[in-house]
Design a binder for these strands. Structure first.
Lengths: 186, 186
DNA sequence: GTCTATATCTTGATAGAC
DNA sequence: GTCTATCAAGATATAGAC
């Protein structure tokens, strides 16, 4: 992939996560990357196309990060804490949301293709988190686990909701406060 | 307040919750309410002004709903379940988010005044939820409460995150799944 | 691959008549 | 209070030269 295309994706992801899908334009992208806005259409013919590429890359990167966590840590507790840290880092001190959270709010502006990619991303994350809770239940490093599947869905909702909280206040401390209930079980 | 103004607020709230703050325009409002878009400026000179009015009304209405719950139910458990139901109803089968969730994602498009109103709304809700957990701890109808303040922040994050989940899938069942972890303690 | 130039549409907002 | 008419700015997207 060309440098320009990567730069476009990098800035578009940041902009989408900071301002929402309807909150950035090709003009913003052009200025940030240093080319004319017409040139962007060479790389991404439409904005729907761009958003699909964003979700594809986000899915791949996050799945890779989850894999890294599994490779690095042995216990359920350690993996859960690493996952929380992953989301915490993604916040950028309360300035950016998770891409899929940011896109969902603009749901009606999105193509059906992108909505499907958001669904797929969330399903992947729930599956990964569920396996962490299953491990934590088996190795007894996470307390009070009765239903790993519903724990996983609740954990993802909590992480995303805590993102919103921190974004509202633009203060990462509120993320930690909301997530404390999860960490206290590790 | 005039009928027209109420109709404008009604549709604007629905639109903001369904499509985000950047996802609806004065033209949409005009068509929905049946007046010309220039006429809207008589009621709300600017969109920032309109969004402030939306948050004011939302704050008042939700605070009233919380009060109704306190008046109607005696135990912490009942009040918590009623609150969950309140958020569940607000979802409209996965078609609309909580207003403040929807606005936060478009944070950079908002006036500082509205951001402050969002903060105030959230603080009010956290306070209300905290008092529910305090009661549930005292009357022993909610299990496992150790820190009502952090429980409250986690619960609000979970409710908002569960909203996003259901919105992503446009399926209220995913709300119930994510929130199950909370209801199981009642 | 990137450019200039342009098309077409939509945006929030204002002026002034009624 | 609502209207018509208009504005300037911004949006996505395309055509065609280099």
């Amino acid at each position: 992939m060309s440098d320009t295309k990567t730069a476009l994706l990098d800035f578009a992801e940041h902009a989408a996560r900071a301002r929402g899908f309807d909150g950035f334009s090709y003009a913003d992208l052009a200025e940030a990357v240093g080319i004319r806005k017409a040139s962007i259409h060479y790389h991404f013919p439409t904005k729907a196309n761009l958003s699909a590429a964003l979700m594809d890359r986000y899915h791949t990167v996050l799945e890779g990060e989850c894999q890294k966590i599994e490779d690095k840590y042995e216990t359920g507790s350690e993996r859960l804490q690493a996952l929380v840290q992953l989301y915490r880092d993604a916040l950028n001190d309360g300035k950016t949301l998770c891409l899929c959270v940011s896109l969902i709010s603009s749901r009606e502006s999105l193509s059906e293709e992108v909505i499907e990619k958001i669904r797929a991303f969330r399903a992947m994350m729930v599956q990964r988190i569920q396996s962490i809770f299953e491990l934590g239940q088996t190795d007894k490093t996470i307390s009070g686990v009765t239903n790993p599947a519903s724990e996983a869905r609740a954990a993802l909702a909590l992480l995303e909701g805590a993102h919103l909280t921190a974004r509202a206040e633009e203060n990462i401390k509120t993320f930690d406060e909301a997530i404390g209930i999860l960490k206290s079980r590790c």
